[in-house]
Simulated scan of single mutants.
Amino acid sequence: MEMRMPLKDYLGVIDNALKQVFDRKAVDPTKARRPLLRGIDRTMAQFKTGSSGTPTGWYRVKNGVVALTVKVASDTFEVNGEATNHLPADRFEEFLLSMRAAVEAGAFDKELADNGAGNAEVQIPKRAPGSISPEAAKLRGVKAAATRKANRENKNKAA
């Protein structure tokens, strides 16, 4: 014989605040990710050209530090609970690659469905102390070569 609980015992399950969730249009995660992925790709391309950012863009570089404000559909998308996050410029590309992988894996789907409200987190992989990224090493090499060339030219002019 099956025992059933009375209806009054189930009334605590009712949550009429769920009406907003019920009425909300279903979000296609793949489609919702596209603007964020395009923004990451655009930001990466701008950063690789040596741009220090634009006032209306995602980032600004100053004193070797990047101030990153992610925007999706002109709304600020909080990362790590903050509208603007700061990180070392020599780790920015790593961060963007890690963020891209997280977006593709669906780590931001809830925040995208909630229009950026939430506490999305992206971890930067740890490196050994004193080591630099391959991109930073390449940039140092290019700058060093330019300095050596300028020094040789100045030496030849003085002679």
Rank of each mutant, 00 (worst) to 15 (best):
L87P: 01
V66Q: 03
K71L: 09
I40D: 06
G57W: 01
T84L: 06
Q46R: 10
N119D: 14
V122E: 10
E104S: 13
A101R: 14
N63R: 14
G50D: 07
D28G: 11
L36N: 01
A105G: 10
V66P: 05
S131Q: 15
P29S: 08
L139I: 14
I14P: 15
D9H: 14
R140S: 08
A26L: 14
S52K: 07
E111M: 06
N16E: 10
G81R: 00
S74F: 04
L7E: 13
G130Q: 05
L96Y: 07
K31M: 10
E2F: 15
N80T: 11
A105C: 09
D41N: 10
A105Y: 00
M5G: 08
R38T: 14
K48S: 15
K48V: 09
V65T: 14
A45T: 08
L18H: 06
N16M: 14
V21G: 03
K71C: 00
N115R: 13
L68S: 01
A67C: 03
A136M: 11
E78N: 12
A45G: 02
T30P: 09
T54K: 13
R42P: 00
T43V: 00
A73Q: 02
G130F: 09
N16A: 14
T84H: 05
I124T: 12
Y10M: 06
D15M: 10
L68C: 02
R38W: 03
G57V: 04
K31F: 02
V142E: 15
L7F: 14
R33W: 04
S52E: 12
G12T: 12
S133M: 08
F108N: 03
A107S: 13
R42D: 09
P35I: 03
L96W: 01
T84Q: 09
A128T: 03
A89W: 05
E104Y: 01
M99Q: 07
A89N: 11
D9W: 09
A45L: 05
D109Y: 02
K48T: 07
K62T: 07
R60L: 02
A144T: 13
E94Y: 04
E135P: 01
L68N: 03
L11I: 11
A137H: 09
G118C: 03
L96H: 09
R152W: 12
V103Y: 05
K62L: 10
A120P: 09
I132D: 08
A159F: 09
K19G: 00
N151V: 15
L18G: 11
A159P: 00
N151C: 10
A17C: 01
R60C: 04
T43N: 04
N151D: 14
G81H: 02
F77H: 05
T56K: 02
T54I: 10
I40T: 01
N151F: 12
I124V: 13
V27K: 06
V103F: 04
M1C: 08
L96Q: 10
P134W: 02
E82N: 09
E121Q: 06
F92I: 04
A120E: 03
E111V: 05
A17K: 15
G106W: 00
N115M: 04
V27F: 06
A101E: 11
D114L: 12
K62I: 01
T69K: 13
V13L: 15
P88H: 15
N16S: 11
L96M: 12
F108D: 02
P129L: 05
V27A: 10
D75I: 04
G118N: 06
A137F: 15
L37D: 08
